[in-house]
């Protein structure tokens, strides 16, 4: 009996230790965001005071207005939304088609081609940017939306992921539909896509996050503010506001906030999507 109570006490003690460690860790993870937010509301003097102060004396909301007006942020927002939405829709559509082709159809070289798709997952995209830059230049697509979106559209990884789900739909269903004279196109949109809507939603959300957060490729192929996205726009903003930390943080908050909201809305799907192996890079 005595042994049991001491074990229980030990367990309770361990649980308390875990909570303390987790709170400490959460504080470290969260602190940069907290500092970003409070600094965005400080005066320049407060933002570079020694020793640093966490909270501003008076909230300087006009920092957001100033940052917003210093660079064409509405334009960056519009570009990011356009690129992320169009890029995601096209990627998902193209991927659904490819995954469908690899599921119900039989054709020469199918397994070999699928192997090729699988192996493209191993190619680091960093390696490809050099030639893709040359290709996009040759096509005259530098500093255009098409140039930013086009090279990102096909993904061996998403194709693989969707095919895994498509394969789970019994092939007898396809045969039955065929017997009834259902066309491939109709079968895809009336059966395959509705049955797998959860998987497709997951791919869509993950793809949207990737597109929204894209930084390196948009940075390389855009040369003017006209086609810049939030992340790359922020970089140019920081260069021009190099001494005003408070304005930089206001701009950073503007850039970070939409994704935080997005995360709050789609948290469940994001987490389960990643857990199911929805990660790349």
């Amino acid at each position: 009996m005595n042994l049991q109570t001491s074990a229980l006490r030990m367990g309770r003690f361990m649980t308390t230790v875990k909570y303390i460690l987790l709170i400490l860790g959460a504080f470290i993870v969260f602190f940069p965001f907290l500092w970003m937010l409070t600094t965005s509301l400080k005066t320049v003097g407060e933002s570079i005071s020694i020793p640093p102060t966490l909270l501003p004396e008076k909230l300087q909301w006009e920092n957001f207005q100033n940052a917003w007006n210093m660079a064409p942020f509405p334009r960056y927002f519009g570009n990011t939304i356009l690129i992320a939405v169009v890029g995601t829709l096209l990627t998902v559509t193209i991927t659904i088609f490819a995954a469908y082709a690899f599921t119900v159809f039989r054709f020469r070289g199918k397994s070999l081609l699928f192997m090729v798709y699988l192996s493209t997952m191993m190619i680091p995209t960093e390696l490809l940017l050099i030639q893709n830059y040359v290709t996009v230049t040759k096509l005259g697509l530098i500093d255009t939306y098409v140039g930013i979106i086009l090279p990102t559209l096909a993904s061996g990884f998403y194709t693989f992921m969707l095919r895994e789900y498509f394969m789970q739909v019994p092939s007898s269903l396809y045969k039955a539909a065929k017997m009834d004279g259902c066309s491939n196109w109709r079968y895809l949109w009336k059966v395959m896509v509705p049955i797998n809507r959860n998987a497709i939603a997951t791919v869509t959300i993950l793809c949207f996050i990737t597109q929204w957060n894209a930084f390196v490729w948009p940075l390389m192929v855009t040369t003017s503010d006209e086609h810049r996205v939030l992340a790359t726009g922020l970089m140019y903003f920081n260069l021009s506001a190099s001494s005003a930390v408070n304005l930089q943080m206001a701009a950073t908050t503007i850039v970070v906030a939409p994704m935080v909201v997005f995360y709050c809305v789609f948290r469940r799907q994001i987490v389960s999507g990643i857990a199911r192996g929805g990660i790349k890079g």
Binding site: A26, F30, A231, Y263
Partner: peptide
């Protein structure tokens, strides 16, 4: 709390 940094841009 711990998942939050996943969705934010590395650059930001």
């Amino acid at each position: 709390l711990y998942f939050l940094p996943y969705v934010t841009t590395v650059y930001a």
